[in-house]
């Protein structure tokens, strides 16, 4: 379980996050939704320690991440997997090398063990055949899959995905969402997914948090989503529906 308490962050006097709190449960795929520029990525970066919040706490199963010393932080980081918005694959390495990179850097496993594990993860995301290709030679959806394989290679307890379906067609989006949700169930991971995709919300939204201009305005799930009385949320959903209809 991950708990965040009153996370606030400003950049150069502009407040981006105004005290966001919430909990993310183990085995759940929790969504953080909101339109572009509301601070979803900044919230995620605060949680994983890439951005230092001005105030607030992040607790990983009770361990205070931001207050920990360097070794404790490293230990918690080893339990995290992150899928970045642009996949963030190392473009000088092959798909397989990308997936085994965390093993190479952070474990003392034998060569064959590492290879087995990397292949196993690639198989899990359905990309064994692409093991020797370079990131520049594969499609956006495949990159996301490789990103997922790399994120889960160390058996993370916590998985973070920043807009896993940005830039993908609707069908590929759904497949990526399902993959994330399946992996979460299978390995009982605490998963946080940032998205503004309506399909994802209906499809995998076991728990949804709505951010609006740096504040949490609503919390619920895919069934209560459309019955809220929060005008900003309804506006957001309607705009999304409109886009979805236009796509059809």
């Amino acid at each position: 379980m991950i708990e965040i308490k009153n996370i606030a962050k400003s950049f150069g006097g502009r407040q981006i996050l105004a005290g966001v709190s919430g909990t993310f449960k183990q085995g759940d795929t929790s969504l953080v939704i909101g339109s572009s520029g509301t601070g979803k990525s900044v919230l995620l970066k605060c949680m994983i320690g890439l951005v230092k919040p001005d105030s607030g706490e992040v607790l990983y199963d009770g361990r205070n991440f931001l207050e920990s010393d360097l070794n404790e932080q490293k230990a918690i980081r080893r339990e995290m997997g992150v899928l970045f918005q642009g996949s963030a694959l190392f473009d000088s390495k092959t798909v397989l090398e990308n997936v085994r990179f965390p093993l190479d850097m952070l474990t003392e496993q034998a060569e064959s063990e590492k290879l087995d594990r990397a292949h196993e993860c690639l198989r899990r995301v359905g990309l064994e055949a692409a093991a020797d290709r370079m990131p520049s030679e594969i499609s956006g959806g495949m990159k996301k899959r490789v990103g997922i394989a790399r994120a889960i290679v160390l058996n993370p307890k916590y998985l973070f995905c920043d807009e896993p379906n940005s830039g993908l067609d609707p069908l590929t989006s759904i497949k990526i969402d399902q993959l994330i949700s399946e992996i979460t169930d299978e390995f009982q991971i605490t998963t946080v997914v940032i998205t503004h995709d309506m399909n994802s919300m209906m499809e995998i939204g076991e728990k949804i948090m709505f951010l609006y201009q740096g504040e949490k305005l609503w919390e619920g799930n895919s069934t209560t989503l459309t019955q809220s009385h929060v005008p900003e949320l309804n506006e957001f959903i309607n705009a999304n529906k409109l886009i979805r209809e236009m796509e059809k």
Binding site: G49, L50, Q73, M80, L106
Partner: peptide, 10 residues
């Protein structure tokens, strides 16, 4: 975000 990816790995 490749640098961020390295950083989150510690």
């Amino acid at each position: 975000e490749q640098i961020d990816a390295l950083e989150v790995m510690g």
